[in-house]
């Protein structure tokens, strides 16, 4: 296990470097005068000159690249063009709110998805199963921003039971709609995977054995079927973390949730490039680390697929 972890960590280095390089290229090597492209038409010559020195654009590209990596290593992502505030500081302030939203959505998706998938596979009534599976098919195909708007229309405008948008100081009532919206696609995926896992497990010998020795259906389901069916669910739930990050961009801007995703959208509208690149880079790093954690936990949960040298 230890060699596996070391190996995976070593593989991380070229990927991190690649992500940083791609960001550098997008940021500094864009065709034309980057400063003019960055500043748009609102800035005078003096501002342009100041930005050029500030970004070090008068130096050779290789020097700029090394300087960029150096700043990155210190988590210095530059300053916002609009507010002049360090990007890293703004990320620190906003990220916890996105994390709360993403984690609530993740819990909803896992609990709801496993429940739906199990009922669909285990239930005795084919009609129920068909309805649930149609629901999950539509769930994966629905654009997250449209779903959010439908929920706002239903629960905030028509029924008036929940606030349509806003942070509300982090109150639960404000969290419900965005979390449900963000969880939906993942819940549908988990439901599908759970269902096929449960159906597979039901055909296995150990389930027949468990039933033959007279165990109750509930124990068979809990101890034998689900334990095996849920292994892929854990991986799927982790791999979907990227869709929570992408989804947070859309969900947060619909619900006015002041997290990282809405921060990116506002930066796009103001053409605030250091903020866009910094936030995207941060989310990419996060995504890489989560994927690593998922890979490692997968090996820990299921010894059968632990890679070579798999001794603890």
């Amino acid at each position: 296990m230890r060699t596996f972890i070391v190996k995976r960590l070593a593989m991380l280095v070229p990927i991190l470097l690649g992500v940083a390089t791609l960001t550098f290229i997008l940021m500094y090597v864009v065709p034309g005068d980057p400063v003019r492209a960055l500043a748009g038409e609102r800035y005078d010559e003096e501002t342009l000159a100041r930005m050029r020195t500030e970004l070090g654009l008068d130096r050779p590209l290789a020097v700029q690249y090394v300087a960029f990596l150096g700043r990155l290593a210190r988590f210095d992502l530059g300053r916002s063009f609009v507010t002049r505030r360090p990007v890293a500081e703004a990320i620190r302030e906003r990220f916890p709110r996105t994390l709360v939203l993403a984690l609530s959505a993740m819990v909803l998706a896992i609990v709801g998805g496993i429940a739906i998938g199990t009922i669909a596979a285990w239930g005795r009534r084919p009609v129920v199963s068909r309805i649930l599976m149609t629901f999950s098919l539509v769930g994966v195909s629905m654009p997250v921003f449209w779903l959010g708007l439908l929920l706002i229309y239903l629960f905030a405008i028509k029924l008036r039971v929940l606030p349509p948008s806003g942070y509300g100081g982090g109150s639960i009532r404000n969290l419900i709609l965005p979390a449900v919206t963000l969880s939906f696609a993942s819940m549908a995926t988990i439901a599908r995977v759970t269902r096929s896992g449960v159906l597979d497990a039901l055909g296995e010998d150990y389930v027949r054995t468990a039933r033959a020795k007279g165990l109750g259906e509930r124990i068979v389901l809990g101890k034998h079927v689900l334990r095996n069916a849920l292994i892929p669910v854990i991986t799927i739930a982790g791999a979907d973390f990227g869709s929570y990050l992408s989804g947070s961009v859309l969900t947060e801007s619909i619900f006015g949730w002041p997290g990282l995703g809405r921060f990116v959208v506002q930066a796009i509208l103001r053409r605030d490039f250091p903020v866009i690149q910094g936030a995207v880079l941060f989310m990419a790093l996060l995504f890489i680390l989560v994927n690593l954690a998922v890979d490692l936990s997968y090996g820990a949960i299921d010894p059968r697929i632990r890679p070579e040298g798999g001794k603890r």
């Binding site: 990227g242 992408s246 961009v249 995207v280 989310m283 990419a284």
Partner: peptide, 8 residues
């Protein structure tokens, strides 16, 4: 693959 697609 290291980027969430929409963000890239």
């Amino acid at each position: 693959f290291a980027y969430p697609t929409l963000l890239l």
